[in-house]
Design a protein around this nucleic acid. Sequence first.
DNA 1: AGAGTCTTCCAAAGCGCTTTGGCTCTCGGG
DNA 2: CCCGAGAGCCAAAGCGCTTTGGAAGACTCT
Lengths: 340, 340
Amino acid sequence: MNLKQLAHMLALSQTTVSRALNGYPEVNEETRRRVMDAAKRHGYRPNPSARRLATGKSGMIGYVLPTGTAVDIDPHFVEFLSGLGDYARSHELDLVLSPADADDQETTYRRIVANRQVDAVYISSPRPSDSRVALVSTLKIPFIVHGRSEGFDFGYPYLDIDNEGAFHEAARLLVQLGHRRLALINGDDRETFAIHRERGVRRALAASGLTLGERHVCSLVMTEENGYRAARRLLEASDAPTAIACSSLIMALGVVRAVRDLGLSIPGDVSLIAHDDVFPWLKPENFSVPLSTTRSSIRLAGARVAERLAARISGLEEGARGEVWPVDLVVRGSVAGAPA
Amino acid sequence: MNLKQLAHMLALSQTTVSRALNGYPEVNEETRRRVMDAAKRHGYRPNPSARRLATGKSGMIGYVLPTGTAVDIDPHFVEFLSGLGDYARSHELDLVLSPADADDQETTYRRIVANRQVDAVYISSPRPSDSRVALVSTLKIPFIVHGRSEGFDFGYPYLDIDNEGAFHEAARLLVQLGHRRLALINGDDRETFAIHRERGVRRALAASGLTLGERHVCSLVMTEENGYRAARRLLEASDAPTAIACSSLIMALGVVRAVRDLGLSIPGDVSLIAHDDVFPWLKPENFSVPLSTTRSSIRLAGARVAERLAARISGLEEGARGEVWPVDLVVRGSVAGAPA
DNA sequence: AGAGTCTTCCAAAGCGCTTTGGCTCTCGGG
DNA sequence: CCCGAGAGCCAAAGCGCTTTGGAAGACTCT
């Protein structure tokens, strides 16, 4: 059932039917009702390919997925996706993932924009002066960055959490508890979120005249194994930290294992605070010693990104609006006063 | 730059240019070269929307993403996606995720097929007599099921791992080691994979005249917390099992925690084997006691599904071909003879 | 040389929708 | 009573590609 048939069966022109369906004003309400009714009754669904060709709009959100045999998709992605899906579902938006060589995403961005394959894109895990952000800003397409880039002389729309503030609070708490040697087990420090977290820790330490030792900050892909290795290296050193801030729950698993392997205890020998993106399958309160966390639901962020993207597509949102969400510090059993 | 312009600038018809570009035989090789050359030089890219409207092909693979506030996307999904992306990238295929109410995916399947939004779809986490499989089989669209359904009187193409065989082997090993009371901490037993695993365990036990006690099999969403609860319940009972087979590494984390909380040890008091889908961020060899696993890379499965989907789209693969991958049993420190 | 056969190319008809540019009819105001 | 201004509808022109149904010329055969 296509427009032509529907129009013919209503003894109307395609123009009128199309307009009636799309809510244009120049059609009699009575006629509109008739059209709407017939459309529903016959299950008419405009062909998206045709509509897209005519309008250039696709009703899809795009995401360039970095891939490669050596590239692993971040497990956080799936949670973000859940949120995105929550919103997208109720607004008939689809999401298209365009896999791209991790080292050359630009080509893909250009392609999906030039082809008008999607109405908007989002960018995640940005780095300072991220080339994707720069590129997409010049392309005429609505977008939002999940996270933040830095060092541009132009603004851009983003949604980020207050990583610096979160880790500042976490470190400040540890310092207040008497800890003097803190360590930070961070994610990839080429990404902005990790930079911000380190900055937060440093600022808190500086406020008490302390510093983050060169060897007390690690930057690694966030796996359990890397958490273990980092913690092990830190704790075996002569100037072992008495408190650790950790960028992910998954790494924290490794940290806990390292602590145990070394015959130490949490929080007796080491206090631990990790960032929690809120996974349904791994909860900080269920760690053998309940884990203190800086918490922010990445799923909610996904939903919000979708919402703002939709707003941008329909022109309801414009300009370089940045949005920064505060992060909760949730104190549980894994922190205590510094050992004597 | 569109076809018309390109044709005009080559003083050829659109027909010829189109055919030259698409490899049709009825065009002079010399002409083809000229066309190809000019196309490349001017960066001509056929407009996918137009092509799609004309051919009905979209160059996209579809996946209906079950969503809802109470629905969590399985973390395995992201690994599968990595594999899918690996293949799709090198073949210019995009992936479109259509979020749907988890309780009504059928509408969405019908929509994406009717709209010809995608050239093929895949279905994951199938259940016995899965309605999605039945539906998609009637629709005229290439598809592959990742996993297996059961109880149909028709065949369908799928890719699955030998879940029954894997758990059969695992259980057999445990029995050989003298264990008499096994338990199974399984995933959602409405899904086929879980049913197959249970079947495998039962078969191995039966071979030695043993059975899987009613209360020795748990079926739960695969989270750390559920693994903990299940293990705790099992191990505190009077007829506590001496060996546990577990359907996921994430649940196994919880099992290990429960064992520790109860002052028991692995493998001294309990042997443990879990299924490993091969996550880059959590490895069985890094468990405090290296975990024995049945191992099968879900990422490779993703790549293979993409490959077969591509083959089906281009007509190279047809019919109801099922493919079942064997699963490795990797023995590590978490299994030992049954305690006296 | 005429007929048949390829080879190589083309004009034009879709694909199904949106949108431009009228056209017709009704109605109130001068 | 005529004019201008809506209101309501329509025909047709795109959007950019593929594909059908030839047609022209070159070549082979008899």
